Simulated scan of single mutants.
Amino acid sequence: MSTLGQFDIAGRSALVTGAASGLGLAYAEVLAEAGAAVTLSDIDGARAFEEAERLRSEGREVRAATLDVADRRATQAAVAAHVAAYGGLDIAFANAGIDSGDGFWNPDGHRNPDAQIDTLDPAWWDRTLAVNLTGVFNTLREAARVMKDAGKGGSIVVTSSNAAQINVPVVGLAYMPAKAGLAHLVRHAALELAEFRIRVNAIAPGPFVTNIGGGKVKTDPAARAFWDRQIPLGSIAVTEQIKPLALLLASDASSYMTGSHVVIDGGMQLGNFR
């Protein structure tokens, strides 16, 4: 097979969680554009159905589903419905995630009195881990079960974060341990599932222009400028920039990759000394 041919995913099917907007929508768009049949699932079912309708109008083979990944039975049902619709599951993007509120430090350089470890509302911790860690486990578990039963291998891609490896004081406390947990989950699952030719890798984004954190970077110039200053390459990313990496990990072009944690953050992990 040619090098470019290894990126071909035509005829395969993919399930993307958290696909109504942001990175999840970007994943769904590139997978559908590359010829896969895609389910866009999201807790915001109305938005997922709107985006699916738009993609169908562009000639893509897609469907939509309402899903809260923290609900294990609902996740199992969503995967089963995808398999019923498309005859199997070749690619799964466990992407759904939420922010965890304000960090202990504000971008303006002051402590946030309501987000200290001894003052924050524990509900932030509970919900963040339920979605960002347990929700990914739920998705990975169901995808692995279906792929093992089919015996054809597959690719599972988890959205982690550069916050799995660095501390970001303006980000809510629960977000970083949840993402660090994903890094270990990916490595463990990759080792366990390698025998079945199921590859498990993580994309670790830095700041992107999405709805996370209330979408402030879209509407607040000061918030956008703050994040731009953190990036050695000069600016926060747009979701189009993650699509090539998503296609790489979904396709046979990454056939010798598993257990990887691929950082895409404009150099933020390196520190910015400009």
Rank of each mutant, 00 (worst) to 15 (best):
W125G: 04
A78I: 02
G45C: 12
L67T: 01
D90V: 00
G97S: 14
A46R: 09
A34T: 00
N106S: 12
D149G: 10
G109E: 11
L129F: 14
Q76M: 14
A70L: 06
E51L: 08
A85F: 10
R54Q: 13
L120F: 15
I117C: 12
A130P: 02
Q116G: 12
D108C: 11
L89R: 03
S41Q: 07
A94T: 12
I117R: 10
L67Q: 03
I43G: 02
V69G: 04
E50M: 14
I91E: 01
F49D: 13
V131E: 02
K148S: 04
L129V: 12
P122H: 11
A80C: 11
D108W: 12
A46E: 08
D44L: 00
L55P: 00
I43A: 07
T66F: 11
D118S: 15
L140M: 11
F137Y: 08
S57R: 14
W124K: 11
P113D: 13
V38E: 00
D121N: 15
N106E: 11
A65N: 04
D102Y: 09
A77Y: 06
G135A: 08
L40C: 10
F104V: 08
N112V: 03
E50C: 13
K152V: 08
G35P: 03
G59Q: 09
W124P: 02
V79F: 09
I43C: 05
W124M: 12
R145S: 05
